[in-house]
Design a protein around this nucleic acid. Structure first.
Lengths: 192, 192
DNA sequence: TAGCAATTTCAGAAATTTCTGAAAAGTCGA
DNA sequence: TCGACTTTTCAGAAATTTCTGAAATTGCTA
């Protein structure tokens, strides 16, 4: 691995974290290298810096592009593909929110819907369906939340996160000023 | 695997999703079985339903307890340990928020702090530090957000998620009624 | 302390994921 | 169309993670 110490530490850490974020080590490292790079890099430059195989970098870049976490660019007079992370760090947040929804929420929501349509034969299944109903409502709430957050522009996103401990106060305020639709406590919001 | 079809489908799916959520298949399946169960189950009952080894269930339960996702109970006159998922599904949300922070945010935040303390020798390292500074601020914002959300009671949590497409409106409202601390756009909020 | 029931530990087996090298496919200018 | 350069694919190797069975440990009762 051919990197200044400070950068190397960051890249290695990001590689390890990758596995906790659903991407593999090399993909995490590639992202990290591109994130701190002063200019777009081509695949061979990444190979050089990380000391992994060319094919591994190729696959990693493909995955990062699928996640919309890196952008393909071209340098005039150079046929090779160059890659960079989007300049706006907030774009990353929006991307991650979107991908998480797609990978972690939506598939389960689809399955839960199907299971709730089925006829429960036994008593055990009936009880299970009640529980699955609760989970369905929870996931649906999350799906909506993620979808909404994704649509926020950067300023609003920053605001939302900066609210911090004031979330409580703002919710109180909202409470006073608007009427809430439907029932909320206990069983989560009722479907259909 | 000894389960009614509907439950089996759910359990298998949850096992697969587990890997996307940073837990392994069996751990996901154990959680799923407990979630739909009508009463607390002991380890052997879980072994029976899932068809995995006793030791695997033991380790899985240990991990779920570490995550605070299952609770150990005792049945009078029975020496065995019984396990159940907390009755309040919103407790799960709070738990997951907390664990995500602990596993995904905090370690990176710590590292970034350290790297920002270091003296940058080269120009490349100086540029890297600027980028790491941006990432640090982002992670700090997230850490604060997670910490705040974790503290919300169930009603507020439901409210927050139910806001849905009204997030934008509420932020506008907040904008008008309160003064915002510090700078927000462009470079994320400045440190110390 | 012995004897039994339950749980935990852990080394190695099995399964899965990641990575590589070699070959194939794509792209461009002449 | 050829040839040089670049990227992609993919079968098998390597690494990692998960799972198991056997043994050790814990805890209880007598």
């Amino acid at each position: 691995m051919q990197l200044p110490p400070l950068v190397q530490t960051f890249v290695l850490h990001f590689g390890e974290m990758g596995s906790r974020w659903g991407i593999n080590r090399t993909v995490g490292q590639i992202y990290a290298v591109l994130f701190v790079a002063e200019r777009p890099l081509n695949a061979d430059e990444i190979v050089e810096r990380l000391g992994v195989s060319r094919s591994n970098v190729s696959m990693g870049l493909k995955e990062l592009q699928a996640w919309n976490l890196v952008r393909l660019q071209h340098v005039p007079g150079d046929r090779r593909d160059y890659f960079a992370t989007p300049e706006d760090i907030w774009q990353i947040v929006r991307t991650l929110v979107e991908e998480r929804k797609k990978r972690e929420i939506d598939p389960t929501l689809t399955l839960l819907r199907e299971l709730l349509m089925q006829e429960a034969a036994t008593e055990a299944e009936q009880h299970a369906q009640v529980r699955l109903g609760e989970m369905h409502d929870l996931f649906e709430l999350f799906a909506g939340w993620y979808a909404d957050v994704r649509r926020l522009d950067t300023d609003r996103l920053v605001q939302l996160l900066t609210l911090g401990s004031k979330v409580q106060k703002v919710l109180d305020m909202k409470d006073r000023l608007t009427s809430l639709p439907g029932r909320l406590g206990g069983r989560t919001a009722k479907r259909g």
